[in-house]
Simulated scan of single mutants.
Amino acid sequence: MWFWQLQRDITTIRIQSGIGQQTGARTRPLVLASLYLPIEEHIPPKEMTDLIKYCEDENTDLIIGVDSNAHHTLWGCNENNKRGMTDSPLCRACMEEDETPLHVMLSCRGVTEQRATYIGSSATLHEAIGDLGGLLSFWSELGWME
């Protein structure tokens, strides 16, 4: 083992290739990386793209563990931030159905308390949008008015 890179927010260790115990064949080298992404900095940082390029060029396997400062209520945070968002179509509050306004306003189990507080436990869309102020407060409380 040897340190390949040690900087403020990234540490990597390269494990040299060896002989596989089961097959007797040479194994590929492996780089293990620990990366911290400060909230105010651009993603991906240059150090990360350089590391990925290095591993691709050297035909080296790579495993990255990341603290991305991604906040989401699904993970027990009190708030969501842009890094906590996902490209998945699943609802960020319950991960059970596609996230649509109708799902969130009428049936999402992940926002039951907020929905009850601001728009009631409405059974229909007409009831849910009957109080525009409550509806705006509901979306604002969720932090999803982006």
Rank of each mutant, 00 (worst) to 15 (best):
D57E: 15
S140Q: 09
H72D: 10
P29A: 15
R109P: 03
K46T: 14
C94W: 01
Q114N: 01
G143S: 08
E113G: 04
Y36R: 07
E41N: 14
Y118N: 06
N81D: 08
G143I: 03
W2P: 00
G20C: 15
C55L: 03
I13L: 15
H42A: 12
I119M: 00
R8E: 15
L132E: 13
L62F: 04
Q22M: 11
R109M: 10
D98L: 01
I10L: 15
D87R: 14
G20H: 14
W144I: 12
L30A: 09
V111D: 01
L6N: 12
L62I: 08
G143Y: 08
E47N: 09
D61N: 13
G20M: 09
G130P: 05
I39Q: 12
T73F: 04
M145C: 12
V31Y: 03
F3K: 12
R109H: 03
E56C: 06
Q21I: 10
V111T: 10
L136D: 10
D61A: 11
S17M: 00
Y36L: 09
E41S: 12
L106F: 06
T23I: 03
S68Y: 13
L136R: 14
W2Y: 11
E97K: 11
I43M: 08
A93I: 04
S121H: 06
E146V: 09
W4S: 11
R109C: 06
D67C: 05
T27W: 02
S34M: 07
E127N: 04
L142P: 01
M145L: 14
N78E: 14
L30Y: 02
L37A: 11
C77E: 13
T112Y: 06
Q21A: 13
G65R: 02
L51G: 02
